[in-house]
Every structure is written in C-alpha cells, then in structure tokens.
Amino acid sequence: MSKLLHISGSPRGTDAESLRVAEVFLDAYRDAHPGDTIEHWDLWDGSLPGFAVGAKAKMTVFSGAEPQGEEGEAWNAARRVFERFDAADRLLFSLPMWNHSVPYVVKQFIDVVSQPGWVFGFDAEKGYTGLLAGRGKKAAVLSTSAVWAPGLPPSFGTNFMSPYFTDWLHWTGIDDVTEIGFHPTVTGDWDAARADVDARARELAKGF
C-alpha cells in the first residue's frame, strides 16, 4: 500500500478550481487504489512554522554544529514539517497561480522543508544532490490560472510557477513528475476546459 499526500496551496475552499480538480483526481485514485491512504494538507491551516530563527539554525547546521536553544526549537519544528512531507510516497500538489508564481504559503513550505541533510546534500566541488532520489516517490502537480494561458501575450502574465515548482521537485531528487494544467483564460470556454482537465486528471490518477 502507498500513502498519497495532497498538499493544497489555495485558501479559497470550494471556490478554488485547483481544489475542485484535485478532488476529481482523488476520487479516481481511490477507485483505482482502494487500499492506499490519502491525507490532505492545507498549507493555510497554520501548521507551517515561521523560519526567521530557522534560517539561523540552517546556517548553524551548514557549519557542522547542532542548533541549540531557540534555534534548536525552530529546527525541530521544521523537521516535523519535513517528516510529514517525506512520509508520503505519492504527492499531489494543487497550486493556483498568484502573481505569475506560487502563493507565498507554498514558497514558505518549500523554504521550511528544503534543508541540508533532509532534502539536499552539498559538495563544494560537485554542487547539490537531491536526497529524495531513488526512493520511488512520485509527484503530480495540478496548476491553475484564470488569466495566463499558453500562447497568450505577456500582457496576460508569465508562467513562472510551473517551471519553478517542477524544477524544485527535480532538485529534491523526485524525477517522476506529472503535470496537469487548467488554464481556461477569462474569456475561454470554462465548461469545456473543466471537462478536458477532469478527464486528464481521472486518467492520470489511475496509474499514479
């Protein structure tokens, strides 16, 4: 059996297209994988710690020392977030586009879990190594936008979200990444776009 963790980046509840399509995906996943465990992590639920002190702890770790006191508490709080993320071997991310990129709470999640010895190793000559590689982890990234869409001019925005987020996953060592996009534009046919993305989500979920 596998564990699927759905990490959502929208605070809009039932009004969010990203969450709606995620539920379509998860319904199909449940049917295809009845023995698997599914957990939802709403990044807006207050579970992400601040990282001002954690950033100092990170540099302490980089120097080869062990964080102590306030730094140690911040490091342990970040570790708990990482362990929740790392406990899943199937990851579904539902991400709305905000200002050409990910919502700030998604960036906060990335900055909290992306720590030396957890997500990456580093060598001064060879550079970074993704520590989540070779463990059978798979990710599906569902991205949505209401204005930007492929082929539109720059006045409709630029998609920094998908390249950035997918590159981060690859950097961690997760190479098996599937992308699902819902980008109907303001004047598009939303019903037809919903039908298309729902069909793709259901199909991908079966083999995820």
Rank of each mutant, 00 (worst) to 15 (best):
M1K: 11
S2V: 03
I7Y: 11
S8L: 10
T14C: 04
D15M: 09
A16L: 03
A16D: 05
S18L: 01
L19D: 02
R20Y: 07
L26N: 12
R30D: 00
R30H: 06
D31L: 15
A32E: 10
A32M: 09
H33P: 00
P34K: 15
D36K: 12
T37P: 09
T37Q: 14
E39R: 12
L43V: 05
W44M: 14
D45Y: 11
S47H: 04
P49S: 08
F51V: 01
F51T: 01
V53M: 09
A57H: 00
F62P: 06
G64R: 14
E70C: 01
G72W: 01
A74F: 02
W75D: 01
N76Y: 02
A77H: 06
A77K: 12
E83W: 07
L91R: 14
L92R: 03
L92S: 03
L92K: 05
F93Y: 10
L95W: 09
P96F: 00
M97H: 03
M97I: 04
W98Y: 10
W98R: 09
N99L: 10
H100N: 12
D111Y: 12
Q115R: 14
P116R: 06
G117H: 10
W118M: 14
V119M: 10
V119W: 01
F122K: 06
F122M: 13
T129Q: 11
T129M: 08
G130V: 11
G130W: 03
G130R: 13
L132H: 07
L132F: 01
L132P: 02
G134N: 03
R135L: 08
G136W: 05
K137F: 04
K138W: 04
L142I: 10
T144A: 07
S145W: 04
S145C: 12
A146K: 12
W148K: 09
A149P: 01
P153Y: 00
F156P: 02
T158D: 02
M161R: 13
L169Q: 05
H170A: 07
T172K: 14
G173A: 08
D176A: 15
V177R: 15
V177L: 11
I180T: 02
I180Q: 07
G181L: 08
F182A: 03
V186P: 08
V186T: 15
D189T: 04
D189G: 09
D191H: 13
R200H: 05
A201Q: 12
E203I: 05
E203W: 03
A205N: 04
